[in-house]
């Protein structure tokens, strides 16, 4: 039985540098980084040099590298599906794809097909779904998915650099965009991007609380400058509010709440990038509160540990159908929010 698995990274930006490399430094018994690919050859070489890996600028070079057992896709969102499909067809042992898994329904269909065709285990790096604090709450929440009637996600964050810079020393950081706020299509694209780039962390969690979303209806969608959104939608008989704001505050506040008549779930997540332990979840009723977490392991470490268990045959891989349903749900929210914003702007 192979005990250590070689990893190749497609994309060596801040997420690879400040999240995955420091996490994998804790997991040397299970993984070794063998190959780093980036479109910028200097970045690929510099990041590979930190971990003693090979480097290249093409997907093909990484997929042809026999030392790579597991492909980690950390490229821009629009490349995820294409690279995932190529990795599966290349006969790799597993693929870990950063969220979102896909950016269109057609891509989601193609991923479903390649999963059935190749059987390669696919994981999505939605770290909150692996977070021990969240999972403990799920194990104890009883009938909350059926009984909850109101769900709220609020994410208030400083710019990523505040955390990236204490997780590693980052190369090649992209500047924060300065779009034309007066263009409705720019706003629609920003809110779509907000859902697929930020809310995406927790939409799989919200989907666990929804019996259905085929009746999803966005009631209101607003883009909040400099970067944020407020989206209100109903689905499966529940009202769901998604709120986010990235500002210059030093204080992160990342909270998911679900309310039923007699139970409330409150989950406080730690910020990405830094290893600040797991979320803390609280399940409250009128006469008690049960607290889960914090654990020392955060969602990123948990997701890699779970991948190791899958590769060793100790754990079944996640259902690709569930992962694809997660991204279909996210796309449904993103598309409907963008359309609601367009209509509101035209009406105004």
């Amino acid at each position: 039985m192979q005990s250590t698995f070689g990893i190749g990274f497609l994309g060596a930006g801040p997420v690879t540098q400040s999240i995955h490399l420091p996490t994998l430094a804790r997991l040397g018994d299970a993984f070794a980084i063998r190959h780093i690919t980036d479109v910028d050859p200097a970045v690929a070489e510099a990041v590979a040099g930190r971990v003693g890996a090979a480097h290249s600028t093409s997907t093909e070079a990484l997929l042809d590298d026999p030392a790579v057992d597991v492909v980690a896709i950390c490229s821009p969102n629009s490349f995820h599906a294409e690279q995932l499909i190529a990795a599966c067809r290349a006969g790799k042992k597993a693929v870990l794809c950063e969220k979102p898994l896909a950016m269109s329904a057609a891509q989601a269909d193609a991923i479903t097909a390649v999963s059935a065709e190749t059987g390669v285990p696919i994981m999505v790096g939605a770290m909150h779904t692996f977070d021990p604090g969240w999972r403990a709450a799920v194990a104890h929440w009883g009938d909350l998915p059926a009984s909850s009637h109101t769900i709220r996600l609020s994410v208030v964050l400083p710019p990523n650099a505040r955390f990236e810079d204490v997780a590693t020393e980052v190369l090649s950081r992209s500047p924060f965009p300065a779009p034309d706020w007066s263009d409705v299509e720019v706003l629609a694209a920003m809110i779509h991007g907000g859902v697929m780039g930020l809310a995406i962390h927790d939409l799989p969690l919200i989907r666990r609380l929804l019996p259905r979303y085929d009746d999803l209806q966005v009631i209101d969608a607003k883009f909040l400058a400099p970067f944020g959104y407020r989206i209100l939608f109903v689905a499966g008989g529940k009202s769901i509010e998604l709120h986010a704001m990235v500002s210059q505050t030093w204080q992160p506040d990342w909270v998911l709440e679900a309310f039923s008549d007699d139970q409330v779930l409150h989950v406080e997540f730690t910020p990405s990038y830094v290893h600040a332990g797991s979320a803390v979840s609280t399940l409250t009723t009128s006469d008690s509160a049960r607290v889960f977490g914090p654990a020392t392991v955060n969602g990123y470490e948990a997701e890699w540990r779970e991948l190791a268990a899958i590769l060793r045959g100790e754990l079944a891989p996640p259902s690709t159908r569930d992962l694809v349903d997660d991204v279909r749900f996210a796309l449904t929210v993103a598309d409907a929010a963008a359309e609601a914003l367009r209509k509101a702007e035209v009406a105004a």
Partner: peptide, 23 residues
């Protein structure tokens, strides 16, 4: 504005105003 019904928490009101560098 939001009003949410539950018996799990005592009645309360909360306000939050996010500023460019705090709240």
């Amino acid at each position: 504005f939001s009003i949410v019904c539950t018996t799990a928490l005592p009645a309360s009101a909360s306000l939050r105003l996010l500023t460019s560098d705090g709240s």
